[in-house]
Design a protein around this nucleic acid. Structure first.
Lengths: 193, 193
DNA sequence: ATTATCTATAGATCTATAGATAATGC
DNA sequence: ATTATCTATAGATCTATAGATAATGC
């Protein structure tokens, strides 16, 4: 499963073969099917884990903090840090869900319990601030999509950006750290009245 | 080529077969190879066109306008409008370049002529504004990546967002129009001192 | 006795080409 | 005579399973 996870994350479902998984895992190809029946089933087990991880993190951290700005900064950074730990998840999700949006339907229901609560808490927090006049009017949808766009796209485009700018691994890390601060700045400042 | 373009944009290189291209184009599969030799060559002709289109638009529009804010708004909207016309290009580029970053190397050189000029003009424009104190200090890299992130990710995630929120086609269009305004707002406001 | 692992292979694709036939241009 | 189109097929995968053999657990 570890090998399969790595290969699926690198190349997606279509480009990964059970032969390759077996080879890199050090067994024969039949054994992969002995344990998981089909390539699809093996993929789904990995994919659902990754999708749940990706979706839940954003809504589950950053409830403390005195000011709205602090709480929001925590959320953005927690989301960013989750991506640092799982940099290839966004590519996998985009890669698989875009041609097969129907795959999402079942999984959404499983997440609604946790995420909806957190979403509502963010929404009421946001609305209170807008009413106070400390930030401009904005929907929770737009705010979240702004944050996810800025965070996720960095990780999606990282291989391409590193290639275009010819960055070493160290330089890439420095660039990512810089982006983390910049993204927080961009989101916080964009809310100012 | 039209059929191939549509299928490659929808499903990427790996999931598209020359058999399917031929079938939907109304000829037999051998004819595809008669004209294009290999699936790879056919793909590259389409891919390079799309990649050039994607990369050049951002740097080639929006030079007029009295204030920096107007010029920047034009650039953001021009980029957004290009994506409206070509909503599936980002997915194709991400999908193909992430597992094969080496494919980019040749193509970069072709674009450097145009884009570098435009990038320099944006950079000097930006620096002048920062010096004047009308906007906060920010690198041209961060500004461009902010814009591309917000714009492109919307189009990458559109199928997923529409599916999650259960949006009709009309509702999706309205959402996109709202996002266009919101993205401009976010970028402009995030630059304020 | 059950579970794990292997070899071998069926069956389904898919790309690419060979070679025959039809259509077109001079 | 050249170009376009077709049928047929070779060769390369790849998934999945059947059936034999080895390892493990009681």
């Amino acid at each position: 499963m570890e090998t399969a996870e790595r290969l699926f994350l690198d190349k997606g479902f279509a480009l990964t073969t059970t032969t390759e998984i077996a080879k890199e895992a050090g067994c024969n190809q039949a054994l992969v099917h002995y344990y998981f029946r089909t390539k699809e089933k093996l993929f789904q087990r990995i994919f659902e884990t990754k999708l749940t991880l990706f979706a839940s993190t954003f809504f589950s951290i950053g409830q403390q903090g005195d000011t709205f700005e602090e709480r929001l900064t925590q959320k953005i950074e927690a989301h960013f840090d989750m991506l640092v730990q799982n940099p290839k998840i966004p590519f996998l999700i985009i890669n698989e869900l875009t041609p097969h949006p129907e795959r999402l339907t079942e999984i959404i229901k499983n997440m609604n319990e946790i995420s909806m609560n957190m979403l509502n808490s963010l929404e009421s927090d946001l609305k209170a601030e807008i009413k106070k006049g400390t930030i401009r009017p904005i929907t929770v949808f737009d705010l979240i999509l702004n944050i996810i766009s800025l965070n996720v796209f960095l990780f999606i485009s990282r291989p391409i950006v590193s290639s275009v700018l010819n960055l070493t691994e160290v330089e890439t890390k420095a660039m990512m750290a810089g982006r983390k601060k910049e993204i927080v700045q961009t989101v916080i400042r964009s809310l100012k009245n």
